[in-house]
Amino acid sequence: MADSKEMTGKKFFSVTMLNAGITLVEAIGGIFSGSLSLVSDAFHNLGDTFSIVISYIAHRISQRDEDERNTFGYGRAQILAAMLNALLLIVLSVFLVVEAAKRLSHPETINGELMMVVAVIGLAANLASAILMHRGAKHNMNMKATYLHLLSDTLSSVGVIFGALMIQWYNVTMIDPIITIIVAIYITFESWPIVRNSITILMQGAPQMDYDAIKADLMSIDGITNVHHIHIWMIDENRIMFSAHINMRDMLLSEAEPIYRQIERLLATKYGICHVTLQAEDVRGRDEDMILNEDLEQQLKTRQQGNSKE
């Protein structure tokens, strides 16, 4: 585990240094060549440098063990970082589209040769950074957001190279802001799902699941007579939590525990649920809905108040 953390730290450090270096090169090259797409790529890389630092800090925080303050651990630090980085990309894309629109109406002279040299250097650095982060991006939303930053930089560099060729060969300076707009739209399109998924997790949203199938599977277990008050939510993109009230025939606690283990195995293997909390009941709640709604919750409160008066 320590080796894994160290390797991740080395990757983040290497990628940060690459991005910081290429940001400086592209900013200088963009100013002297007059290329908006190079300047926009430099801004993009500057944003990536900050996002990589944020991602690394969030990654380290997420490694902390559960404690009294956060009994589910600190994994959501990476979700917050992913959402922040994706939002940063979207805001940056809007800014680039506005600047590109200005250039379309007021074209400027561009040094295509200098633009090409800087873009090739940027492509090499961005591609190296994306390769470094690719492996960790498969199962981690935070690293995926960082990888998306780097991948979009690589695509942007390819676009800048194409624009430089068009300017050198045909003197079509308008291609520069057009490429900027295309890349900005692509970045926004790829970033929005990360924002949406992050919000879903932070709002304790549930993944797409067949609740009727879950109930049917649980009801097929011998000893269970009903399932109600089901709650499913995500702690992060890899951990799904489950809680439910289950009606069971009257039995000893030692008889109920094997049923609990059977439920846990079923939910883990078939539905990918990693944490299960169950409340066993005999007849209480047997006629209640699978998912508790506000009207039913008010009925329960009224019923409880009536029982307390008795």
Rank of each mutant, 00 (worst) to 15 (best):
D210I: 10
A216S: 12
I246K: 06
D250G: 04
S308Y: 14
V118Y: 00
Y211C: 02
H44N: 10
L300C: 04
A128C: 04
A206Q: 02
G159N: 07
L36N: 08
K309N: 15
I182C: 15
L96Y: 15
A2Y: 13
H44T: 02
Q63C: 09
V276N: 01
L202F: 00
E294Q: 11
M203W: 04
R60N: 07
E281C: 15
G285I: 06
V227H: 06
I131G: 06
T23W: 08
A184K: 07
T200F: 09
L292N: 07
A216I: 05
I214D: 02
N85P: 10
A42H: 09
A86Y: 01
I161S: 07
V227R: 14
A164Q: 03
H44W: 09
V118C: 00
V39F: 04
M219S: 14
N70A: 11
V120G: 02
L267D: 15
V120N: 00
L300Y: 10
G75H: 09
A119E: 09
G306Q: 14
A20N: 12
S191D: 03
G29E: 10
T16F: 10
H229A: 00
E113T: 10
V276M: 00
P177I: 07
H44R: 00
D176T: 08
M209E: 03
T8R: 11
D236G: 00
G75N: 03
S308Q: 15
G223H: 10
K144T: 01
L150D: 02
F43D: 12
L87W: 07
M133W: 04
A77Q: 05
H106D: 14
S33I: 02
E255G: 13
R60W: 13
N142D: 00
T302E: 13
D212G: 12
G47V: 06
K5T: 07
N238T: 11
I175M: 10
T173H: 07
T109H: 11
N140M: 02
K309L: 14
A100P: 12
V98K: 10
S152M: 12
L18W: 11
V97P: 06
S14Y: 14
Y271D: 01
H139P: 03
E264C: 06
Q204N: 09
W192M: 15
A128R: 13
I182E: 08
I110L: 13
F189W: 07
A2C: 14
P207F: 05
E99W: 06
Q298T: 15
Y147S: 06
V195C: 00
F162I: 14
Q78N: 08
F72W: 03
M290T: 02
K138S: 03
R239N: 09
A27R: 05
H59D: 10
E255V: 14
F12M: 11
F95C: 09
H229D: 03
A100R: 09
E237G: 02
I230M: 01
Y271Q: 05
H228W: 04
L123E: 06
A100L: 05
V94W: 02
S4C: 01
L88G: 11
L104N: 11
D217A: 12
V39G: 11
I194N: 04
I185M: 08
S14R: 11
T23I: 15
E288G: 09
H44E: 10
E26F: 12
A86C: 13
A2I: 12
L151V: 05
T225E: 06
L36K: 06
P193H: 03
H59N: 14
I259Y: 04
S157Q: 04
R64H: 00
T173W: 14
